[in-house]
């Protein structure tokens, strides 16, 4: 449920976890990011950082500048002033990301895990089986058949948790046990009902289904998209994956390596929750791509 009044849960002398609800729910996540934006705009003295997630916001503050009671009261005022969810609209750029599904990088990573850690079913096979799909083609079609909402950012720098906006394209996947010790940068992962692009070579637990040459985080800031920022995506942004063949994948990879790849983004796009609800209501849920 979405709570009428947020719960404030203290985390030591300088953090607060503000819980807005207790479920995974798009409207709740939208509210989290809309409220985060409001609090950011308010520039509250003594507020240091905001870490919004699925259903909650972790707040860090300087208790020598603002007391726990005062920051709580101030944030509650902004929560009260939020108005109706239906009327909310956010600027929500759409990033287009090419993916080579069920590719050589994915297979090599899976083979390495099987050889060094433990035998497991090939991830795309497991995804096809558990989600009742026809095969790899439908896996690619379903995964690339929807816009994704950036529901959270973090765990590791630049890692965005993406949830499918089209319920017909939602899949589920168990996590690796034990986790992988490494995952190639650019791997497309799926865990629970969340998909992601690995921003760097890191350990990982999501099932892996494809690979993109397009970076989503770059601490060296070489490409134009990273000129002012290190992480491509922010909560409230959207992502659209599109399937490519090896030739196109290699072309993009060369552009990235040459430092002249331009990220494909519709930065004018807005997201209206009323329009989204209207579209959802009109969907024939049994139709599948």
């Amino acid at each position: 449920m979405i709570y009428d009044k947020p719960k404030f849960l203290p985390g030591g002398d300088r953090f607060i976890e503000m819980e807005l609800g207790d479920e995974l729910n798009f409207d709740l996540n939208f509210l989290v990011h809309a409220l985060t934006a409001k609090i950011r705009e308010a520039e509250i003295q003594g507020l240091i950082e905001l870490l919004p997630n699925m259903a909650s916001i972790v707040i860090s503050y300087d208790p020598d500048t603002i007391s726990y009671a005062d920051i709580k009261a101030e944030i509650l005022t902004h929560h009260l002033a939020m108005g109706s969810l239906e009327d909310m609209e956010l600027l929500s750029p759409i990033y287009y990301i090419p993916v080579l599904y069920c590719d050589h990088v994915t297979r090599a990573c899976w083979e390495d895990y099987c050889a060094k850690i433990t035998e497991k079913e090939y991830d795309p096979d497991l995804m096809v089986r558990l989600n009742d799909l026809d095969g790899y083609d439908q896996l690619a079609r379903i995964h690339s058949g929807t816009e994704y909402w950036v529901a959270a950012l973090g765990f590791y720098p630049g890692l965005a948790s993406l949830i499918a906006l089209d319920p017909r394209c939602r899949m589920t996947a168990p996590k690796y046990n034990p986790p992988r010790t490494w995952t190639p940068k650019g791997t497309i992962g799926y865990g629970g009902s969340v998909t992601c692009v690995y921003p760097a070579q890191t350990p990982g637990g999501y099932q892996i289904i494809g690979h993109t040459p397009v970076p989503v985080c770059d601490i060296a800031q070489t490409l134009p998209a990273f000129k002012d920022d290190l992480a491509l995506l922010r909560p409230g942004d959207r992502v659209r994956f599109f399937p490519v063949e090896r030739e196109e994948y290699d072309y993009v990879e060369r552009r990235v390596e040459a430092g002249n790849y331009v990220h494909n983004v519709a930065s004018y796009a807005k997201f209206s929750i009323r329009d989204y609800h209207k579209w959802l209501d009109g969907l024939e849920m049994k139709e599948r791509f």
């Binding site: 985390g11 030591g12 300088r14 953090f15 976890e17 819980e19 207790d22 479920e23 995974l24 870490l51 919004p52 997630n53 699925m54 259903a55 909650s56 916001i57 972790v58 860090s60 959270a152 973090g154 948790s161 629970g192 009902s193």
Partner: peptide
């Protein structure tokens, strides 16, 4: 006794931010 999206272990919850020192 919680919604399935929390995960199956009692220590599992819906993804949330972690305070330093937690």
């Amino acid at each position: 006794d919680k919604a399935p999206e929390n995960g199956s272990d009692p220590s599992n919850t819906i993804d949330h931010g972690y305070p330093i020192g937690a």
